[in-house]
Amino acid sequence: MYGFEAISHHNGWAMAIAGALIVMAGLSVLSFIISQLHRVVELIEGRGKKKLGRIPPEVDTAREAPQAAPLDADELKTRYAPLAEELGGTFKLTHLYEIAGAHDMPHIHLSIRSLRAAGVLVPEADGVFKWQQ
């Protein structure tokens, strides 16, 4: 038995539709629930803090005062030039991203984008970039 006849014989249409709907519904529900997990976490952590009461919370200075994004192109150029030098004449942006991460540079995406906009990072062929002195 072949074709539509075989599909109908094995109840294929119903199975395909039901299967697709079940997996879509299941993952949608999971997606919705995990989108609410952070609220549950906030709730749990909020209660925890209330219980702690008088104990002063530890001040995470790094979080409270995030380092401002050095959006000034000249400053960025000064900071990123040694990294570009380390990577050689041409390099992939992923490598620059990785090395910047290793050096704990703040706002790497934003910085690389600014360097591109300022014409400091010049695209070459095959997705590699050149550091414009």
């Binding site: 038995m1 072949y2 074709g3 539509f4 075989a6 599909i7 094995h10 294929g12 249409w13 199975m15 395909a16 539709i17 299967g19 697709a20 997996v23 879509m24 299941g26 993952l27 949608s28 999971l30 997606s31 919705f32 995990i34 989108s35 997990l37 952070h38």
Partner: peptide, 28 residues
């Protein structure tokens, strides 16, 4: 966890399974 809506794309890509189920049944 940071972007749960992307999970729907994982669900959508499973449609290939069900279309192929029909194809394989049709092939006998």
């Amino acid at each position: 966890l940071a972007m749960p809506r992307l999970m729907l794309l994982g669900a959508a890509a499973q449609m290939g399974i069900y279309v192929t189920l029909l194809g394989a049944l049709g092939f006998g």
